[in-house]
């Protein structure tokens, strides 16, 4: 008999998630509402809750596209990606890739989606104590050799369009500027400072250095690398400015802390 319940549930869920599957035979029919309309309530709930959560997670992409166009894309995504996550918070992870695949000519759409998703990640990513001047002072001589990591909220995204400017205009409720392809790709750092998600565009040297830190480089490692590339005084001046900014923004943690919390 246990198989019976499993079979009922498989058939009913298929009817909710897809338009084609039929589960009316499982349901008590009636003249007033009817089995088909009754199942339709669940089908509509499913579609509405998933497209609703996509509109919430991809708020600026939604604002950029408008209700109709975003709704069209969200419907197509929900059909192509039945939910396999327990918590709605995590539904939509594949939307940026879905958009990149279906709208290759409109690269700013996938970039806006990636930025929205990275900010959502930053919002409730794992807590970790960021390095500040006091923590570095406590480390003393160990500081320069200590393996570093990025705060668990931090992500680096590469933009080929002026998507960061589009996002900021949409966030401010202003008309977005015209889409433009950048002369050279720019990396954007997304992270959480305190409880607030942020992002900012990076110069190439900062982006490359943060990638190294993400792989566990120490301050000595990144110094040595930069000195190889530019004259030593310039390298030290650049690093001092970057470090001051990272400490103020709460971007860095010690790698052993990252290992402990993951």
């Amino acid at each position: 008999m246990a198989d019976a319940l499993y079979a009922i549930q498989q058939r009913f869920l298929a009817a909710i998630m897809g338009e084609d599957a039929d589960a009316e035979a499982l349901i008590v029919d009636d003249a007033r509402v009817g089995a088909a309309r009754r199942i339709g309530i669940y089908r509509n709930n499913y579609r509405a809750s998933l497209t609703g959560v996509l509109a919430d997670h991809f708020e600026r992409l939604h604002a950029y596209l408008g209700d109709a166009q975003f709704g069209h894309i969200a419907d197509a995504y929900v059909k192509a990606h039945p939910s396999t996550t327990r918590n709605l918070r995590y539904y939509g992870a594949a939307l940026p890739g879905f958009i990149a695949h279906h709208f290759p000519e409109d690269g700013e759409l996938a970039e806006l989606a990636r930025l929205d998703w990275a900010l959502r990640h930053a919002f409730d990513a794992l807590d970790a104590s960021p390095l500040d001047a006091g923590a570095i002072g406590m480390l003393g001589e160990q500081w320069v050799g200590a393996s570093l990591a990025l705060h668990p909220s931090a992500r680096l995204l590469t933009m080929h369009h002026n998507s960061a400017a589009l996002w900021s205009a949409l966030d401010a409720g202003e008309a977005p500027p015209a889409v433009a392809v950048l002369a050279a790709p720019v990396d954007v750092l997304v992270w959480r400072s305190g409880l607030q998600p942020h992002f900012r565009s990076l110069a190439a040297v900062e982006a490359a250095t943060l990638v190294r830190i993400g792989r566990g480089a120490s301050f000595a490692d990144i110094s040595a690398h930069l000195v190889n590339e530019v004259e030593e005084a310039t390298a030290m001046e650049t690093l001092a400015a970057l470090l001051a900014r990272w400490l103020a923004d709460g971007v860095l943690i010690l790698a052993d802390q990252a290992a402990a919390v993951t």
Partner: peptide, 12 residues
């Protein structure tokens, strides 16, 4: 709410 790793996010 679901079966076989698929989730309706509804109270069925």
């Amino acid at each position: 709410t679901g079966i076989n790793a698929h989730n309706s996010h509804d109270l069925l």
